[in-house]
Design a protein around this nucleic acid. Sequence first.
DNA 1: AAAAAAC
Length: 483
Amino acid sequence: MSFSHLGLSDKVLAAVAAAGYTSPTPIQDQAIPHVLARRDVLGIAQTGTGKTAAFVLPMLTLLEKGRARARMPRTLILEPTRELAAQVKEQFDKYGAGQKLNVALLIGGVSFGDQDLKLTRGVDVLIATPGRLLDHTERGGLLLTGVELLVIDEADRMLDMGFIPDIERICKLVPFTRQTLFFTATMPNEIRRVTDTFLHNPEKIEVSRPATTAATVAQSQVSCSREPHEKRELLRRLLREAKELKNAIIFCNRKRDVAIVCKSLQKHGFSAGALHGDMDQSARTASLDQFRKGELPLLVASDVAARGLDIPEVSHVLNFDVPYHPDDYVHRIGRTGRAGRTGTAITIVCPADFKSLAAIEKLTGQAIPQADLPGHDASANEAVVEAGAPAAAAAGRSSRSRSAPDKGGESYARGGKRESRKPRRSGGDHQRHEAPAVTAAASKAAPPPSIGRTLAPRREAVSEPGDHSHLPAFLLRPIRARG
DNA sequence: AAAAAAC
């Protein structure tokens, strides 16, 4: 199988070959001919399936003809986060280097004026997050009446983030006759409503969900008390003792904890950077760039980094917190073990997390084994297993089927009020549906109860701040870098 | 519960 039969132009084929790709992924193979035939496409695909190139490559071929007019972009791509938007732009820069294309990025957090200037010069490809795009249209600096092709990417995530009303507004600003490419990982009712309204006789392409969690990722959990201080200490131990750690993303549930954990690691001599949505855009970009280049081995991040970001060669994912929503776990650990490489995912679990953990094990259909950490006090975890086992068993009786991708359907069905930008994801909806039996391991017999034991005794410090004797050199902070 | 996204 090669790219040559898909109908791409010679220029694009040359760029693909130069990038070292020889065979298309299933979504590329199926979508590209339809895009080139100017059909609408509904692509149901996860990130990591080669989805971006599935629209970038044919768009480059289509854009070889024609020229952009001032303030009237020819194509428009909508992305849920700034980082994803920037990542798509990189793909255009990479594969479109041989073409004189004007590609503009309209995202928040950066200068409005520069973007406006670029729009006046005419753009072939406009890549945007919804808020900033609407800002430009409302100020009159941007006309969407010349858009020939519209891409809506990560639609279900936009739904989670409350962007659907914005998407609908934007869809009404582009010509009715445009071509639309629509990508989503799942099809909840609210998304189905959007596709029914805005797609014309779409070609539906569904690529098999990559096994929810890649087999190349070794998963484990480590118990801990909920004391932030002890969690940070455990995190340091995990980093020190991790095998074959090259670099790691450390996920926290809250932005403030991202900042705290990052600072703490730095204080203890680790070379770490932070990434969350309250940082200014230049700092976000800087952290991500340094991490990608390998200059920064540790990235402490919120779920802004959980989905879609392409960071090759992440050896470890560490969940400082168990994510609230099981899908987020799958996305987080999907940052490692990519492209057939091996990866390691370790999750720190406190007693209060048993529900979230049971939901994760049910979603992935596999129990997460305890990490082997000699001397680590597991007493805090006995409460977890004890409380978690009945929950997992109950889940086996009444949970949803994983073959039904439109999870939480009814919870999305109502609403649609413009002013409500709140996510409508209903927590705990997994309790209401039915599902396959939970794995044997997850429902294994619970150990004897240890009632009332929620806090592990304070462990002896593994090392004092400033004692970096066991820390590999590359994990150390360079002297007087990054205050 | 939290995060994300416009000034």
